[in-house]
Amino acid sequence: MTTDEIRAAFAHPALRAEMTLPGTAPLDRISLRDHVREVEIGAFQQERGRTQRLRFDIVVEVLREGPVDDDVDRILSYDRLTEAIDAELASERVNLLETLAERIADRILLEPQAARAFLRIEKLDRGPGALGVEIVRLKGGTGRGAELVAPAPQPRVVFLGAGMLDHAALPAMLDRLIAGDAPAVICLAAPDLPRPRSPAALAQRRIDLLAIEQAAWVLAGRDRRCLVVNSRTELDWAMRRRQLCVWAPSKMVLDAVDGPKASDGLSLAVWFAETMGALELCLIGTDDRVQAVVPVRRASMETPL
Rank of each mutant, 00 (worst) to 15 (best):
Asn230Thr: 13
Ser263Arg: 06
Glu5Gly: 07
His167Cys: 02
Leu227Thr: 15
Ile284Pro: 00
Leu148Ala: 07
Leu177Lys: 07
Pro112Lys: 10
Val36Gln: 03
Ile186Phe: 03
Arg156His: 12
Ala278His: 04
Arg232Pro: 01
Pro67Trp: 12
Ala105Leu: 11
Leu76Thr: 09
Arg16Ala: 04
Ala84Pro: 05
Gly221Trp: 03
Ser31Tyr: 12
Ala162Ser: 13
Gln291Ala: 09
Val136Pro: 00
Asn95Arg: 15
Phe272Arg: 00
Phe44Tyr: 15
Glu18Ser: 07
Asp223Cys: 06
Pro151Asp: 06
Ala201Val: 14
Ala169Leu: 10
Glu18Tyr: 11
Gln291Trp: 05
Leu202Gln: 15
Met1Arg: 09
Leu188His: 05
Thr99Val: 15
Leu305Thr: 07
Gly49Gln: 03
Val270His: 04
Glu102Ser: 14
Pro153Val: 05
Gly180Phe: 13
Gly129Ala: 12
Arg53Asp: 07
Arg37Glu: 12
Val62Lys: 10
Pro171Cys: 04
Ala146Val: 11
Leu81Pro: 11
Arg195Gln: 13
Leu177Arg: 11
Val149Asn: 04
Val293Leu: 08
Asp69Trp: 01
Thr24Ile: 00
Ala101Leu: 12
Ala184Thr: 11
Val185Lys: 05
Ala101His: 11
Leu97Pro: 08
Ile75Val: 15
Phe159Ser: 02
Val136Asp: 10
Ile6Leu: 08
Glu65Val: 05
Gln291Tyr: 02
Pro295Leu: 03
Leu100Cys: 05
Cys282Asn: 14
Val136Ala: 14
Ser250Pro: 01
Leu81Tyr: 08
Lys261Ser: 01
Lys261Val: 04
Arg197Ser: 15
Glu92Ile: 12
Arg7Thr: 09
Leu235Met: 01
Val157Tyr: 01
Gly49Val: 06
Arg29Tyr: 10
Ile108Cys: 12
Thr20Asn: 13
Ala184His: 09
Asp175Met: 12
Arg107Trp: 06
Glu147Gln: 14
Leu131His: 14
Pro249Gln: 06
Gly140Arg: 07
Leu119Cys: 06
Ile104Arg: 07
Lys123Val: 05
Asp69Asn: 12
Ala278Ser: 08
Ile41Ser: 12
Asp86Pro: 03
Gln204Pro: 08
